[in-house]
């Protein structure tokens, strides 16, 4: 995910600074399911194939990883250690662009194996982060914070939950020395985790 900064160009004819909008690459969500049907017929020898689908560029540079994850099967590939890293190229610019995704047939087969992966017990960790965050956001903040000790994957995941929910909030929490630092700690962790992405 690259993003070039807005450029102030001194070369405009009327002397006013020319503002060039930021240009986004690798920033799309796209339906690319239409070719799955034919993959069986051509599954061998890692032939590179191109998958073309229309997509909308999402003008949200600060949230790059999330945008990629929102393309469903790309997200699942990432959840499995990036075994299906895809070569992606956005062609053109402006509101609506055509995006090209290339990946080998072998990688497509990996997606078919998603069902297999889920038969393992740790199926909830197989879910994409955005779904896990959605589940957590239905919980009380106390329960959400507790998920930090589940495993290393979950350690900072809760910081992406966008709501606070204190239902049976009692005085004891306020007096807890930890709770005083809760907010600042959360912010620190969030920025640390975001920078890792």
């Amino acid at each position: 995910m690259t993003r070039t900064s807005p450029v102030m160009s001194p070369t405009t004819s009327d002397g006013t600074p020319h503002f060039e909008p930021p240009h986004f690459e690798h920033n799309f969500s796209t339906p690319v399911y239409q070719h799955f049907e034919s993959r069986r017929a051509e599954n061998s020898d890692r032939v590179q194939r191109e998958y073309v689908g229309s997509s909308n560029v999402q003008g949200n540079g600060s949230h790059g990883e999330g945008d990629v994850t929102s393309s469903k099967w790309v997200g699942e590939g990432q959840a499995r250690g990036g075994d299906a890293a895809l070569g992606m190229k956005v062609v053109g610019s402006g509101g609506t662009v055509v995006s090209k995704i290339t990946c080998s047939c072998e990688q497509i087969m990996d997606f078919e194996g998603v069902g297999e992966c889920n038969k393992g017990r740790d199926f909830i960790s197989g879910l994409p982060n955005d779904i896990l965050v959605q589940i957590l956001s239905c919980l009380e903040t106390k329960d959400v914070v507790k998920t930090s000790v589940l495993s290393s994957r979950w350690k900072n995941l809760w910081t992406f939950v966008y709501n606070l929910h204190f239902d049976d909030y009692d005085d004891k929490h306020c007096r807890s020395r930890n709770f005083e630092n809760f907010q600042s700690l959360s912010m620190q962790r969030y920025s640390r985790f975001s920078s890792q992405l």
């Binding site: 393992g120 017990r121 740790d122 199926f123 909830i124 960790s125 903040t141 106390k142 329960d143 914070v145 507790k146 998920t147 930090s148 000790v149 589940l150 495993s151 290393s152 979950w154 350690k155 004891k172 929490h173 807890s176 930890n178 709770f179 809760f182 700690l185």
Partner: peptide, 30 residues
């Protein structure tokens, strides 16, 4: 936490020390 972990079959990959430290960070939640 133990219930949720068992419930979903999440494998705990923390050492006991790491887990204790994370618990201590947000003691109020537990």
């Amino acid at each position: 936490v133990e219930y949720v972990r068992a419930f979903f079959g999440i494998e705990n990959d923390f050492t006991p020390e790491e887990e204790a430290r994370i618990r201590a960070e947000n003691e109020w939640a537990f």
